[in-house]
Design a protein around this nucleic acid. Structure first.
Length: 586
RNA sequence: GCGCCCGUAGCUCAGCUGGAUAGAGCGCUGCCCUCCGAAGGCAGAGGUCAGGGGUUCGAAUCCCUUCGGGCGCGCCA
């Protein structure tokens, strides 16, 4: 029997055993199984007796013994011990690990998938950079994080939509349009001089100007701003978004939906006004006054009555304005309307990925979602990605203060490659500041985790190539050997350690998905690669542990299956992270 | 002044939503190639988990508090 998830199986067995010795109806939701840190504590440990003791009316160790006795009857179990305050430590028969390995190899790319997502409709919104210029390095962490998280959720049974919110409606896109208009006149031969303060000065708008000049000749110069501005704006946004998409593609970041902020108000009905009216009718929007902000003084503070969202009713600290003094909507107002569309579109789980500078915005957005959902089920989780400090060989790369000059995402990807960028962005918890050293990520050593993990995958394929040279009759697809006889000969401690690590993968995937923490996959892969490299090197001093044994085809086949397990999981994990899995390093 | 995030080995960081004697990389010390890729591996030294209370069978993890760093705090998105 091929096992799909050895820990999930074990949990079922433990619960069955507990059920057999407990009074009916005891809540077992707190019962967990886990791989103990100390191998002396067995392969799998459970806290069942400790968390159930109270309800069972027994002492933890007493209950542990009773459950242990039931578990001993299981065919997969070698021995069961009770230790400490009431841990039940289970040792599985080696055959159980072989089964887990077979399961991994059989399932291939499906290994680690699960149904814990329960087909939940999830909307993951990430990047959402303003369409006013090229993407810079600050954007890429959120992009990679969101993309990997979406992969992870889809892999674990959620229905995921990846979304990009285009902020194409605020004052900043009008500035973009005016800036592009200058470049347009420049492209027509006019000397516009230096780009004035308050405009976007970057060279990246020159192609927009040139495109406008080609398309309209000098026609736009003869019309008032009210007429040319929407035309220029549309063109500029279109070209900026094309650049953004190209940058994202270079990073292997995908989106299903690009949602335009302007579309909220451009249609037949003003959806922002509609949403505010809806909230007002529910009593969550009112006209009122706010106290001036404490601390950082606001110079032109003016006490006035304004339209406010009652976010304090949903856990926020103060109520939040929905209209500016000129009567136009605040960003928050359209964001509320936008999130309403997400709920209307049927999403139950909303995930926003934001930069650290937006962290102060979380409470009000969650308050808004709580107000918007009404009777529907919807939850917003905001994942904040912290700053990236860009370094070269330990020295910070200083960005020029001169406006319009910054390190673009494209430059970084071209220098070190998309794989390195992606992996390093994910090789840290999202809420911790990240040092990204351009010199280090192209190093080929253990110091560089990207290389180290990819090298593990390449090494596996190298074994297959060499094995075919030694045994020309081997099939091209090593996975087809999974049912071969002799796998039980994989009995060395290093081999068992590797099988345990492979068996851990589905559990790690589930935990990472549940916590919305893709970095766990990256760290796991590093550990797996480490175990694999260790076994490999053992072959140097212990030739009988080499993967390819010239005069022992059965042993070789067994080890190839083991290597296939490693390769399967490395490839799967790297795919989740959106990082390539090369079959050789060059 | 308030809110959010962070504080773990000399340095950079994990720590599996509360588990057992807190781990890895770098750096340091000492080892391993007649080798399937040494682009690698093994071993050793190194800790008041910022400090102090609390919750309980059990805390780096949860709560309170102090200290120290980062980010943010109507009419910018």
């Amino acid at each position: 029997m091929a096992t799909k998830n050895i820990f999930a199986d074990a949990l079922i067995r433990v619960r069955d055993a507990a059920t057999a010795v407990l009074p009916a109806g005891v809540d077992q939701s707190r019962v967990t199984v886990e791989p103990p840190r100390d191998p002396a504590h067995g392969d799998i440990a459970t806290n069942a007796a400790m968390v159930l003791a109270k309800d069972a009316g027994k002492k933890p160790r007493e209950l542990a013994e009773a459950i242990a006795e039931k578990l001993r009857a299981d065919a997969q179990v070698e021995k069961v011990g009770v230790a400490g305050p009431g841990f039940i430590n289970i040792n599985l028969k080696p055959a159980a690990w072989i089964d887990a390995l077979r399961g991994a190899v059989h399932l291939g790319a499906q290994y680690g998938t699960s149904a814990i997502g329960g087909d939940t409709a999830v909307n993951v919104e990430y990047v959402s950079a303003n369409p006013t210029g090229p993407m810079h390095v600050g954007h890429c962490r959120g992009a990679v994080f969101g993309d990997a998280l979406a992969n992870l959720l889809a892999f674990t049974g959620s229905k995921v939509v990846r979304e990009y919110y285009i902020n194409d409606a605020g004052a900043q896109v009008d500035v973009l349009a005016r800036s592009a208009y200058l470049r347009y006149r420049e492209a027509l031969g006019e000397d516009v001089g230096a780009i004035p303060e308050g405009f976007y000065p970057g060279d990246y708008l020159k192609p927009v100007g040139a495109a406008l000049a080609t398309q309209y000749k000098d026609a736009l110069t003869k019309r008032p701003e009210a007429e040319w501005l929407p035309i220029v704006r549309t063109k500029a946004i279109e070209m900026m978004m094309a650049a953004v998409r190209a940058d994202l593609a270079a990073l292997n970041v995908k989106h299903d939906v690009f949602f335009s902020e302007r579309s909220l108000v451009d249609g037949k009905t003003d959806f922002v006004a509609d949403t505010i009216a809806w909230l007002r009718q529910r009593g969550d929007v009112y006209e009122g006054r706010l106290p001036p902000p404490k601390g950082a003084p606001v110079e032109d503070w003016e006490d006035r009555e304004q339209t406010l969202f009652r976010s304090t009713a949903f856990g926020d600290d103060v109520d939040r304005p929905l209209k500016k003094s000129d009567g136009s909507y605040t960003y928050f107002a359209s964001d509320i309307a936008y999130h309403r569309t997400k709920i209307d579109r049927g999403f139950r789980s909303l995930i926003d990925v934001w930069g650290a500078d937006h962290a102060g915005y979380i409470k009000r957005m969650q308050a808004a979602v709580a107000a918007l959902k009404g009777d529907r089920e919807a939850e917003l989780d905001v994942k904040v990605v912290q700053l990236v400090k860009l370094l070269r060989a330990g020295r910070p790369i200083t960005m020029s203060k001169r406006a319009g000059e910054f390190v673009t995402l494209r430059e970084v990807v071209e220098e070190v490659g998309g794989d390195a960028v992606r992996f390093m962005m994910l090789f840290r918890k999202n809420d911790a500041v990240l040092d990204f050293d351009l010199a280090k990520v192209i190093e080929q050593s253990r110091d560089n985790p990207v290389f180290y993990v990819q090298y593990g995958h390449a090494r596996g394929h190298s074994v297959f190539r060499n094995a075919r040279a030694a045994f020309p009759d081997l099939p091209d697809d090593v996975a087809s050997l999974a049912d071969s006889a002799g796998l039980e000969r994989l009995a060395d401690p290093a081999e068992l350690a590797l099988m345990r690590q492979i068996a851990l993968y589905p559990r790690v995937v589930e935990a990472a998905a549940a916590a919305h923490e893709p970095h766990r996959i990256a760290f796991y892969l590093f550990d797996l690669a480490s175990e694999f490299h260790a076994l490999w090197t053992l072959g140097n001093t212990a030739p009988h542990l080499r993967f390819i044994i010239q005069n022992d085809r059965q042993m070789t086949v067994a080890r190839l299956v083991l290597v296939q397990g490693v390769v399967t999981v490395l490839a799967s994990g790297l795919r989740l992270l959106g990082v390539g899995a090369p079959s050789e390093m060059r």
